[in-house]
């Protein structure tokens, strides 16, 4: 690619503020965390014992950790797939010329503006075991009251739905922008050639959306691994009996509640490696199939 800059150093100069901030607030702490993961640290930091790989061994020999690991995987896959599918469908609907489209758009993007804790609180109102609205509706309509948050499987479903819903607005914005860039000419000529709506979507719209989809895939995986902790803290506290205790929530508890600093550092290192690994893998595989206009 041809350079836009006359001086060789100008681009680096322009990048430097970001890099300096990243170095201080991201790279240095990440490096410190990595070092800490080889230590056992007393809860108030007054003692530090070098422990080699102790924390890592401990972690992978803990059945509960492995359980959380699997749970996170299922959680992530479900949230990403459900999130992308639903938001693409909604974006397709929103992209039509209907009355009040702008109003619908604003309303559907809204959930993204809420903090995780607030959306957690909303879902808690809905599914609260004592007097939640959902319990009331199902009672009136079907005369059953499912234990939404106190049954392990149901609680996991509720958490997945909440996490998907929370990120819907973000995905919709990007899909909507992507859809508006799809060339109308291509769609029209395909229609003239006799291609139905489904065919047009599969052959034209979806491939042209692939850069958006790929970007959202990466962002959503990061979201599902890192950003759903507030939601879980408010909704279930990782329960019932660990049923919603995904890696990021376990990490939060181990550091901030249990004060197991070294162990938590090891956990965060593994989580970091995992997400970076998945992202690289995606660039190597899915990324190659992306069609850039």
């Amino acid at each position: 690619m041809e350079s836009y800059f006359k001086s060789k150093w100008l681009p680096y100069l322009l990048l430097s503020p970001t890099l300096i901030i990243l170095a201080f607030f991201l790279f240095y702490p990440a490096f410190e965390t990595f070092l800490l993961s080889f230590y056992k640290v007393a809860p108030y930091g007054n003692r530090k014992i070098f422990a080699g790989l102790f924390n890592f061994k401990q972690m992978f020999s803990d059945k509960d950790y492995i359980y959380s690991f699997t749970l996170s995987l299922i959680f992530s896959v479900t949230v990403v797939l459900a999130g992308l599918t639903v938001s693409l469908l909604i974006a397709l609907l929103l992209n039509q010329k209907i009355k009040g489209a702008r109003v619908y758009r604003s309303l559907l993007i809204w959930p993204y503006a809420l903090s995780p804790a607030v959306s957690g609180a909303i879902f808690r109102f809905l599914f609260n075991p004592a007097n939640g609205y959902m319990g009331y509706f199902t009672k009136v309509l079907f005369n059953i009251e499912p234990k939404w948050l106190t049954n392990g499987n149901l609680a996991f479903v509720v958490v997945i739905v909440a996490a998907t819903w929370k990120n819907l607005g973000y995905n919709i914005i990007f899909y909507l922008a992507g859809l508006q860039n799809v060339q109308k000419e291509a769609l029209e000529s395909a229609a003239i050639d006799g291609a139905g709506a489904v065919r047009r979507f599969r052959a034209i719209t979806f491939p042209l959306l692939s850069p958006t989809t790929f970007f959202l895939l990466v962002m959503n995986i990061i979201y599902s691994y890192f950003a759903s902790f507030g939601l879980i803290d408010v909704l279930t506290e990782g329960g019932p009996a660990n049923a919603t205790n995904i890696l990021i929530y376990r990490l939060y508890r181990d550091f901030f509640v249990n004060s197991r600093v070294g162990y938590a550092a090891a956990e965060s290192f593994i989580l970091f490696v995992l997400v970076v690994g998945i992202t690289i893998l995606q660039f190597k595989t899915t990324g190659k199939k992306v069609y850039y206009q």
Partner: peptide, 8 residues
């Protein structure tokens, strides 16, 4: 069973 927390 109302779960954890001090509100329910």
């Amino acid at each position: 069973d109302v779960g954890p927390g001090w509100a329910n």
